[in-house]
Design a protein around this nucleic acid. Structure first.
Length: 156
DNA sequence: GCCAACGTTGGC
DNA sequence: GCCAACGTTGGC
């Protein structure tokens, strides 16, 4: 059985909700990536394999951009916050026998000294086709092509 | 199945 | 705070 090729992703979060520093402060620097409530984003998470790598993107903040790299530490499993009535991610329509929302665990690999800001990405024609840069894109989880992954790394 | 209304996202 | 873009909902 051939080993599946490693996939690359981008995961977006508002730093006020969950930042790369929050992740850095967790035991073993591992945390569930909870609260995804969009089917397309969920489907991408369910396609993730342990060991895949993802950019950690901060949105809705003074300097939106990529702040580091995480790895997938645990593959998709039901997001417990959907059943927690006190959580803002509670979903009354989700059935515990068939959970609607899933999450993965991420492990902090690198927090960059110099983040690659959105303004920088927009100036580089090599990454112009990245999903995150496309007009109107709002998906919180997107796949990243390997050539784009390498281009971003070169901008650190 | 269509589509208007509404809510959310996210850069600026 | 503004507003364009998009996803979801619900009436028909």
């Amino acid at each position: 059985m051939a080993k599946a090729k490693r996939q690359f992703w981008l995961m977006k979060s508002e730093p006020e909700a969950f930042s790369i520093d929050h992740l850095a402060s967790k035991p073993a620097q591992v945390s569930p990536w909870d609260g995804v409530r969009n089917y397309q984003a969920r489907n991408f998470m369910m396609a993730m394999a342990k060991g895949d790598l993802a950019f950690f993107y901060h949105s809705s903040c003074p300097e939106p951009g990529i702040y580091g790299v995480v790895s997938i530490a645990k593959e998709a499993y039901p997001d417990f916050t959907q059943f927690d009535k006190k959580s803002k991610y509670f979903d009354a329509k989700s059935n515990p026998d068939q959970p609607r929302w899933h999450m993965v665990d991420v492990h902090l690999e690198e927090k960059w000294k110099n983040p690659v800001l959105l303004s920088t990405l927009r100036e580089d024609p090599r990454v112009a086709e990245m999903v995150i840069l496309r007009r109107g894109n709002r998906l919180s989880i997107t796949p990243v092509e390997e050539k784009h992954w390498r281009a971003v790394l070169s901008l650190r």
